[in-house]
Structure formats: C-alpha cells, structure tokens
C-alpha cells in the first residue's frame, strides 16, 4: 500500500506541475515555443522523478 504521506506529497507535486504548466502555456502564448516546451519538460520531470524515487526506490 502507498502510505498517506506519499499521497499528500504526490498531490503537492501535481499542484506544482499544474502551476508550472500554466506558466508554460502563458509563455507559449507569448510565442516563445522553445521556452514553453522546456517548461513543460521541467514540469514533467518534476512529477515523474520524485514519484519514481518515492515508489520504486528505497531511499
């Protein structure tokens, strides 16, 4: 089972990612495509990496 604090943490991560993506969209609208793509990338990494470490690795 996934412990409760993991769920809280993952929710937090998702919020952060959501915020970051919204920033990326804002940048995209300002016609900075490369920047927006990089921000999306950052957002994705910022969710996937911690989750991978939380669940699949024992720290």
């Amino acid at each position: 089972m996934i412990p409760v604090e993991y769920i809280v943490l993952i929710a937090f991560l998702l919020c952060v990612a959501f915020y970051t993506v919204s920033y990326g969209i804002w940048i995209w609208k300002k016609r900075n495509r490369l920047g927006a793509v990089m921000i999306f990338l950052v957002a994705i990494i910022a969710v996937i990496l911690p989750i991978y470490i939380l669940i699949f690795r024992e720290v």
Partner: peptide, 27 residues
C-alpha cells in the same frame, strides 16, 4: 534557464527545479 530560453520570469520555476534537484540527489 531563464536566459537560455528567454523566459520572462524564473520565479514560477523555483519549486519544480527544487523538487528536481532534491530528487536527483536521492538517486
């Protein structure tokens, strides 16, 4: 990062980057 990709603000990226840094340090 801000300068390379010519972003207007870097502050929204602080927390995602901090999370990435911390996660990488656990690897």
């Amino acid at each position: 990062f801000q300068k390379t990709f010519q972003l207007d603000y870097y502050k929204p990226l602080i927390i995602p980057f901090a999370i990435i840094i911390m996660s990488v340090s656990f690897i």
